[in-house]
Amino acid sequence: MPTMTTPGIDVPDARGRTGLNRTGRDLTGNPDVVIRDVELLATAWHVLRRTTYDYRHADGGWSREQRETYDRGDGAVILLYEPERRTVLLTRQFRYPAYVNGHPDGMLVEAAAGLLDDDDPADAIRREAAEELGVTVGALEEVFKVWMSPGSVTERLHFYAAPYTTADRTGAGGGVAAEGEDIEAVELPFDDALKWITDGRIADAKTIMLLQWAALHGPYATK
């Protein structure tokens, strides 16, 4: 009888990964949570798991819970700003999930961002700024690290900001064509970017967070 094998568990999946059903089984940091099982539901690109665990409530009673988590790795995002001209440099690209959920055309204006892909966060965001906007980033300011959708997505996003000048735009940008990226650079006066939040032309959470940080505590904060 042939041995049953499952890609991503005991044989490599399309991305060469195994043991994907082990994640979370050894968690011991919270004594009110006991992991019972981890099931692998999908590994086509990122990883969808269903975890069963026992949870102790505030009244001392236990219940058995199940949660699905989508693991796409961690990411990084950067706000590029030009202090002398009081501008920011953003991207515009098609986002199918937004399009299918009510955005008129799926073309979102965003700060440059991407997955870490096993790189250090600072190295990853320098790579993304070069690929998407053609900018060679100098000194980085780390702003914060945030779980963006902790109810279902494991990703933690590293937020950065950095100044740029015209001279720093050393590459073509546009993203990686082999990955299906078709990215437009959008340079805006900072005050216009804030107005775009109000009228809905900027509707991306990470970008709104960075723009508001810039207005409240960052390079465009009132001193």
Rank of each mutant, 00 (worst) to 15 (best):
A112D: 08
A113M: 10
A113P: 00
A113R: 10
A113C: 05
G114W: 04
G114M: 05
G114Q: 06
L115V: 07
L116S: 07
D119K: 15
D119I: 02
D119A: 10
D120H: 14
D120E: 14
D120S: 12
P121K: 15
A122G: 13
D123R: 15
I125T: 09
I125F: 05
R126S: 01
R126H: 07
R127C: 03
R127G: 14
E128G: 04
A129C: 08
A129R: 11
A129P: 06
A130V: 04
E131G: 06
E132H: 07
L133K: 00
L133W: 01
L133P: 00
L133V: 01
V135G: 01
V135T: 03
T136N: 06
V137E: 01
V137C: 04
E141P: 02
E141N: 10
E142C: 05
V143H: 08
K145W: 02
V146C: 02
V146L: 09
W147G: 09
W147A: 14
M148F: 07
S149T: 10
S149H: 13
P150Y: 13
G151Q: 11
G151C: 02
S152L: 11
V153D: 01
T154A: 13
T154G: 10
T154Q: 11
E155I: 06
E155R: 10
E155L: 08
E155C: 10
R156Y: 04
L157A: 03
L157V: 15
L157F: 02
F159E: 14
F159Q: 12
Y160D: 00
Y160W: 09
A161C: 09
A161W: 06
A162F: 06
P163N: 00
D168E: 11
D168I: 13
R169L: 04
R169F: 02
R169I: 15
T170Q: 11
T170W: 02
T170K: 03
G171H: 08
A172V: 13
A172I: 09
G173F: 03
G173I: 03
G174M: 06
G174W: 06
G175H: 10
G175T: 12
V176L: 15
A177C: 02
A177Q: 08
E179S: 11
E179A: 13
E179F: 14
G180H: 07
G180S: 05
D182F: 12
D182E: 11
I183T: 14
I183S: 06
I183G: 09
E184I: 08
A185R: 02
E187I: 04
